[in-house]
Design a protein around this nucleic acid. Sequence first.
DNA 1: AACGCGGGGGC
DNA 2: GCCCCAGCGTT
Length: 354
Amino acid sequence: MAFSSQICEWYHQHKRDLPWRNTKHAYPIWLSEVMLQQTRVKQALPYFTKFLKRFPKVCDLAHAKEDEVLKMWQGLGYYSRGRNLHKAAQKICFELHGEFPNSFEGLKKLPGIGEYTASAIASFAYQTPLAVVDGNVYRVLARYLGISTPINSPEGEKIFKEKANELLNKKLPDLHNQAIMEFGALHCTPKKPKCLFCPLQESCVAFQLNKVNQLPVKLKKTKVKNLYQHYFIFETESQKTLLNHRNFEGIWKNLYVFPVLEYFNKPRLEEVKTDFENKFDLRVKMERFEKKPKQHLLSHRKIQAYFWQVKLSSKEFDRIQKENNYQLTNFHKVKEFAVPVLIQNFIDAFLSGN
DNA sequence: AACGCGGGGGC
DNA sequence: GCCCCAGCGTT
């Protein structure tokens, strides 16, 4: 219990005032936890506020269109979280009479809720004595206990989960869980942890062995692949353009982009033009907005995006829209659709005249 | 057991 | 440039 009381004491003195800590209701806790998956507090905070204002209750979220949920999620990334959030809200509202499951197992059945999030909601909302194990906890425990088992190996997962539950203060699981995560986020940080004035210094194995900067151990990193995208901004004289709803598996599922050709190997310009002509059965003058591609980095892709301006007669425009089932829209209404940040950046520049 | 999935920020 | 972030779902 020494560990927990020390962590909780530290938490009492250093914790940030975050809105989802001022409630015991499952709905806002769940919303915050999903947004915080692989996402920093600073980035998630404005989304949390915006969502709660627009969807005060879970059934408000359930009754919304997925398009609107994704539009509100725009810029937060990992859009499957937004889609699953919406699906889970519908389950809770329409199948569970608006009541959240009150057990770990019940919570974990909901889409988008895994081991971590189920533990978090169960402990924060219902004081269930379950330890959360997130990136912060892996790091704190790896150092404090001097465990060099890779945190993302099956054995590591098992060991750290066991240790986390051994150290858990089962009388105050919510406080303990908040405390250890906040400690990892603010004090026992990945780079430059504040060991020199750490309350756990004497009992921290990694500090005693001077191995803090070697822990935690993490296996591999998935290689980043290049992705070359050529977007086509179709224009008519009446300010219309076409959007493609990405209603298939993969990057940006269910978001909207301009009609696009994608390549894993850099195509020659002639190749792009030929592919364009074949895809749309169309031979027109096309011009790139800029010679240099816009680079956009994802965790697993390095995207080079080219944007082409394609002016069409209303007849051809109409044909292409129908043949490809594209979304027809006025250019200044593109901002009403959920689009990736890459596309939003282009639109912003385009509309401001660059 | 490994990979796909976004975007931002620290160093 | 590399790593990490209150991970999850699929294969």
